[in-house]
Design a protein around this nucleic acid. Sequence first.
DNA 1: GTCTATATGAAGATAGAC
DNA 2: GTCTATCTTCATATAGAC
Lengths: 205, 205
Amino acid sequence: MTTTPCPTKHHAVLKAAARVFLAHGYSAATTDMIQREAGVSKATLYTCHPNKEALFAAVIEHECAEMARSVQALTATRGDIARTLTELGHAYLRIILSPVGLALFRVVVADAPRFPQLARHFYLAGPKAVGGLVAAQLTQAAQAGEIDVQAVGLDAAAGLFLSLLRGEGQLECLTHPATPPSAAQLDRWVELAVATFLRAFGSRA
Amino acid sequence: MTTTPCPTKHHAVLKAAARVFLAHGYSAATTDMIQREAGVSKATLYTCHPNKEALFAAVIEHECAEMARSVQALTATRGDIARTLTELGHAYLRIILSPVGLALFRVVVADAPRFPQLARHFYLAGPKAVGGLVAAQLTQAAQAGEIDVQAVGLDAAAGLFLSLLRGEGQLECLTHPATPPSAAQLDRWVELAVATFLRAFGSRA
DNA sequence: GTCTATATGAAGATAGAC
DNA sequence: GTCTATCTTCATATAGAC
């Protein structure tokens, strides 16, 4: 080896690139912005990443990994299914309606035609992974007799719950930037989703 | 007046601009592409629209108006609520999961931070308008005793139905471009949404 | 109003010194 | 490995002839 790269600058580049790409998307973001925001020169930027596309891919992969970490950390306290879904729902909504969560969705979806593999990665790291967690919880609840999802199946039921959860909130946040939802609004969305899901699939008492 | 603009070229510009902007988004689209695709010169393009931003706004407004027209045309045959929701759902999914519907969503959401008023316009012309239609149908169904949505209210119930309807399908289509859903898949999404909604809010028989 | 030709600036990427 | 300076390409927008 000749000389070793500077880890602190390398890190600064990725952090700056994340901010710029998430804020502006792939095309509107410029390497100049990233370079300036990272406090490094253009040459340094191109030392670690061959070009703008590769840097973008690195950023999105990293953000997806972060999201996957957050999702894996979603730990549901054992209790009745209503409480479990409420906790899971609240935590998941906090993730996807956060500034970073919304920006990531925006950018991934916007550039999906150009970077389809990144979009699929996002899908797997986020929605799909959460679906698995929810399905696992529903399995236990079904065994405990709390719910009955035989009519649609476990995976479909998990997907329906997540659709109820995301639905309004994500759409409104995406189309009304600069108007973050209140905590009360968040609570209401979760409550509506849980209540509706249990009305549909909860066992009659 | 001096000379009148050529309506056919003006129209060609808007059509070309729509194709280019919907395919690439605001930033990645170039006026060169639009000019070439419309078969006119740059000067002609700038005669009708002061700049790229204005042209983009005109395109999105027009597409929103088109979508609003499609939505207003959604006419539900009178029948039981299950059939009504199925028809409405199928028609609405066909709109938002069509190539143009998906592209419009992509672009509007992607550029919402830069064009917030266009995003709000989209929200009103699409999801909000459909919500109104659904709420109207639910009102009649509630009066007929077919459903009971007192627990959440009419508007919330309409929103929940649309969330169930969009949920999986829109997310999958957005993150898996070039993989359009089959007709069977579409039917299944509608069926799942209607069945789940009625399990939650249908009157017990 | 429409075209060809062009001004002007900025973007992505590299050369060469240290 | 990092920086400054620069090359090349291409984008938005306009000038001037018809």
